[in-house]
């Protein structure tokens, strides 16, 4: 095969996810999307929603993938878990990766399974030496079995571990250095975690290792308060992206250039046009950054 030839794909469109906005795919939007072919860069799916053997979900995803690039986002692998990875689950991820040729694959710096219990939440990990070694082993295994690089997403957290000896940033940087994985920068998670940990989101983002970032997430959060009356933000994905998060995103893009940017809206899912408007708002910020780049060059 000549090096400039594209490998043969089963799908009608390229695999590579462009530096444009995308949306989380919801079953209730599929008919609308297939009918209107909205101008959007890609769709992202939660891998676990497509782990049944067949039927409507796969039929819909195949139709979507034929028109749009895809990002495969796992939520249940428990990379931060104390036990070995679930081999069957990893095999199912590899199968989806093969079947749908996603341009990006990502998972979380979190745990969700211990022994025989799956907790169905992205639970925090301690940032210590033992966890670092385990997480890196797990990521090596994932990248090995899937035969590709993965992106690791920074978490939203409500507590910290007293036993942590690394900052979250140092922990993430050390993981990328040891495993060669990329990062998924969730700007909403940064805002939520930093607020909850009484740190500056802007300072965190200033130090974020942007050279490893392959994708950005934006989503909505719900405000609450802890026992002591301090702000406690909940990563609910149940509403539009907060203005403060848009402002941080604008700074990140202005500083580092365009990146694939996903709008996450998983609960109280709105009608498709509302979600598309959020993606359009991201597109506007990406376009302005591009124009500024062009001006700087000329």
């Amino acid at each position: 095969m000549r090096s400039d030839e594209q490998p043969v794909s089963a799908f009608g469109t390229q695999a590579a996810v462009p530096n444009r906005p995308g949306a989380g795919l919801k079953a209730e939007h599929v008919a609308d999307i297939l009918q209107s072919h909205p101008d959007i860069g890609f769709f992202e799916v939660h891998a676990e929603n497509y782990m049944g053997s067949g039927g409507r979900p796969h039929q819909q995803l195949t139709a979507i993938r034929d028109i749009y690039p895809l990002s495969l986002h796992g939520v249940g692998l428990s990379i931060g878990g104390e036990n070995p990875l679930n081999k069957d689950h990893l095999a199912r991820l590899a199968e989806l990766n093969k079947r749908y040729e996603p341009g990006l694959f990502s998972e979380h710096l979190a745990w969700s399974t211990h022994e025989t219990t799956y907790y169905n939440d992205l639970l925090p990990v301690p940032y210590d030496q033992a966890t670092l070694i385990r997480v890196c082993d797990h990521i090596d295994e994932v990248q090995d079995v899937m035969g590709r690089q993965m992106l690791l997403e920074n978490p939203s957290t409500y507590i910290a571990y007293a036993q942590s000896t690394f900052s979250e940033l140092d922990f993430l940087i050390e993981i990328t250095r040891r495993t060669g994985c990329g990062l998924l920068l969730d700007v909403n998670n940064v805002y939520v975690s930093c607020t909850n940990q009484e740190q500056s989101p802007a300072a965190y983002l200033d130090e974020f290792p942007m050279q490893y970032v392959g994708e950005i997430h934006l989503g909505g959060h719900a405000p609450d308060m802890d026992e002591a009356g301090r702000p406690l933000l909940i990563d609910a994905h149940d509403r539009a992206v907060d203005d403060a998060v848009w402002a941080l995103y604008k700074d990140v893009i202005g500083m580092h250039g365009a990146l694939p940017t996903l709008i996450e809206w998983d609960n109280d899912v709105p009608a498709w046009p509302v979600l598309l408007r959020e993606a359009d708002a991201a597109q506007e910020i990406l376009r302005r950054a591009e124009n500024a780049d062009l001006k700087a060059v000329s």
Partner: peptide, 18 residues
Amino acid sequence: EGAVGPDGLPDVKRFNVY
């Protein structure tokens, strides 16, 4: 014990989110 808020102390509302 060991799951704490920014003051290093446990906080039940924070853990209750999980």
